[in-house]
């Protein structure tokens, strides 16, 4: 039903951000990530953005050199309540737009160097694999306030 994992991976297959909403062991994570990115990379832009892999439905979208990949679990007995693939695609776009607004124009290095900040942003939008908030302002305003709160102690703790 819900999102199982969210990845941001670049064209070289390096993971830039990963967030799992169900526990997968480290070894399996590594295998999963590398195989999914290989699958996504091998598809042309004329092919659809959905891949089924190891019991997951993977929805991906490419922005410049960065792949945004969202995986949801396929239910075991087949078909009841599958996640809305188009909805997930829309959510990815919403996430990218929010990040764009947050950083001006987001790029791979921004994501990489402000790892924890992106995670904070993501936590405002997704919780336990469910969407919490899709409004950019409602996501960014608390983030901004929290950031200011942190800044106070910045000199000591960073």
């Amino acid at each position: 039903m819900a999102i199982s994992f969210l990845l941001m991976v670049n064209k070289q297959g390096q993971t830039r951000l990963s967030s799992y909403y169900e526990w997968i062991s480290l070894i399996e994570r590594n295998a999963l990530e590398s195989e999914i990115i290989r699958k996504c990379l091998s598809r042309s832009e004329f092919q659809c953005s959905f891949v089924e892999y190891r019991g997951y439905k993977v929805v991906y979208r490419r922005y410049a050199s960065l792949f945004f990949i969202v995986g949801t679990k396929l239910s075991k007995d087949g078909n009841d309540n599958p996640e809305n693939e188009l909805g997930l695609l829309e959510f990815i776009h919403n996430l990218v737009e929010t990040m764009d607004k947050w950083a001006g124009s987001i790029c791979e290095l921004d994501i990489m160097y402000s790892l924890e900040l992106i995670h904070f942003l993501l936590d405002e939008m997704v919780q336990n694999g469910h969407i919490v908030e899709s409004n950019k302002m409602n996501v960014l305003r608390p983030l901004d306030l929290m950031e200011r709160e942190s800044q106070k102690a910045e000199s000591i703790y960073r």
Partner: peptide, 30 residues
Amino acid sequence: LFMHMLGYPTHFGQLECMKLIASPHFPEKR
């Protein structure tokens, strides 16, 4: 967090998280 993302073991840091959330300072808690 960064090392975990790259796929390296980080289990030794688990207790540190527990200590951080007990901290009175917001950035540490966060």
